[in-house]
Nucleic acid binder design. Structure first.
Lengths: 338, 338
DNA sequence: CTGAAAGCGCTTACAG
DNA sequence: CTGAAAGCGCTTACAG
């Protein structure tokens, strides 16, 4: 950049010292009204904006939050990002984003986000392994996890949703309201905590009704519609008997419905379907998807709040679990026309 | 942070000067192999990561790109973000994100992103007004616009898509293949450049076929399904005659289809529908939406490339227009079952 | 190939 | 209420 204005230029024009300029800009100490006015004028005049790096270096604070995502491209992240950005921005923090899926071919993966460039980290990914999490914890660096519990020994705040309760409710609904007995659980990736907790809710609901758990009925759709399609095709091919499918996410429901339709099974008459998330498109499916609404934007907001507490040295909630809501539409057999 | 390791600690442990440490870390000058090994060991040992702010201040580069979005929450932004993040990350740039819709009540809106904290700006918003754009241009600060032309006098690279051509093609299709003559154009917000360019394509297609332009047939859906619903209701109430609707975006198509169904108009038999964008849900609508595929992720990628050229002082493309693709599904009357 | 030194642009005690 | 000075942790000529 060709010679931007610095605090020295402002000081000179306002005829005060740079200390005074700093004071009025940060409101960090009382300053004479006239002097303040001159400083403000000079700032406007010179179009001065303090250099962030200099400020960070001198103040030992970056005023920046780091957001580590598994894959920034997911539809799921839109509300999460919105929530995070809103709260961070309101609190005066900048937001540095990094996706962990994009691996840099050949490059040594230098730590992208950490103590060297942020005041705290928000993570929604398994990319922060236990070793790194332990290191950050040891140096007392603020971290908040989303949709993921910290490793056993570490005290790291975590924000998630009522996965088990939500799943239990919706599966209970399939059983109670629609008489389902052979319910498939279409799970997500092996390590996905949401998926595992939702499976717990699924099993709990079966147990509540004395329905034996059948491992044949649990298959993976990887939380992805194409894989879900394949998984259901597999079930059909193997002639597994089922009267309902609870997909651990909404995306999968797209593939599920397609596979069933192609096989001539009617939804919900022959097979009742329910999902989880209440994604934007859930109501657009045919039939509209019964699902569990996950307050994702709220997760983002809450996570930033906790992170800011940590940064300020205030006590933070070790575990925040946000409530979900059962959304009944027609894919389970409710609200059918006629 | 409690005493992080600094370059001094590394230098001491490796028994070299901080200059040498800097050299091996940045590969900025040849260093004796043994010394280099000692430095690398010390770095690992101390878990050293260079402090970003210090580096930025000394090198006069932030290695950070700023992304200014109107509203980070839009479904539209997901692929854009993915494209931007991937290229920025590959090129070794960090990404600072700011949404311009979130207005800070009471706070003086300090410049969020600019010369003080980034090496260049990517903008997809009208929040960068002509004054600010002019200022940035004058100080030679790199900026690239997405889906938005720069003010007349300014030379600011811009990346967009073939809005006019795409719209012309899809409207031509409605006319040629499905005999539409009274085609509604459901436009977006007044200032939205995509919407305006798409309207040009719409008008051009009408002209190509000698169909007179009827201002009654252009109404605003604000690129938003609820507004679109209201707009179509209005058309119906006023008994405006039409046989097709071209919505300037896909979101609106949701509201459009709903309004028509409620009024007992069949899609596509009574009214053919076509959208623009090919959003994720376009294929999920009933009937599946005929639309124009916009390569949004590619826009993001291309924009970052141009920005990096600017930052490096290399020549940049003043205007990049990415091709679109007509996607025929059933909402226009194509591919009907039976 | 290497080190001492200046400097990047701020903030923050310290002294007044 | 105000200024001079030290210092934040690096990079980068400069001299060798």
């Amino acid at each position: 950049m060709p010679n931007r204005a610095t605090i020295e230029d402002v000081a000179r024009q306002a005829q005060v010292s740079i200390s005074t300029v700093s004071r009025v800009l940060n409101a960090s100490a009382p300053v004479d009204d006239e002097a303040k006015a001159r400083v403000l004028d000079a700032v406007t005049n010179l179009n001065y904006t303090p250099h962030s790096a200099a400020r960070m270096l001198a103040s030992r604070k970056t005023n920046t939050l780091g957001l580590l995502l598994l894959d920034i491209g997911g539809e799921f992240y839109t509300p999460l990002l919105r929530g995070i950005e809103a709260v961070a921005s309101d609190a005066g923090f900048d937001l540095l984003i990094h996706s962990t899926r994009t691996s840099h071919a050949g490059l040594i993966p230098r730590r992208a986000l950490g103590e060297h460039n942020t005041d705290g980290l928000l993570a929604f990914t398994d990319a922060l392994d236990t070793a790194e999490l332990t290191r950050l914890n040891q140096i007392g660096f603020p971290v908040v996890l989303m949709h993921q519990s910290p490793p056993p020994a570490l005290e790291i705040p975590c924000v998630s949703i009522e996965n088990k309760t939500g799943a239990r409710q919706v599966v209970d609904h399939l059983i109670t309201a629609h008489g389902a007995r052979r319910i498939v659980y279409l799970r997500g990736p092996q390590q996905n905590e949401d998926s595992k907790d939702r499976e717990k809710g699924y099993r709990a609901a079966l147990k509540d009704h004395g329905i034996p758990f059948d491992p044949m009925l649990v298959v993976s759709g990887e939380f992805e519609s194409t894989q879900a399609y394949v998984a259901v095709k597999g079930l059909l091919d193997r002639q597994v008997v089922f009267d309902a499918i609870f997909t651990g996410d909404d995306d999968s429901a797209i593939g599920v419905i397609q596979a069933l339709k192609e096989a001539g099974r009617r939804v919900p008459e022959d097979v009742a379907i329910a999902g989880f998330d209440d994604s934007l498109f859930a109501r657009l499916l045919t039939p509209p998807l019964t699902t569990v609404r996950a307050p994702i934007e709220q997760v983002g907001r809450e996570a930033v709040c906790q992170l800011i507490h940590l940064i300020r040295g205030e006590p933070a909630e070790p575990r925040t679990i946000l409530p979900v809501e059962l959304i009944l539409r027609s894919s389970c057999g409710c609200n059918l026309p006629g």
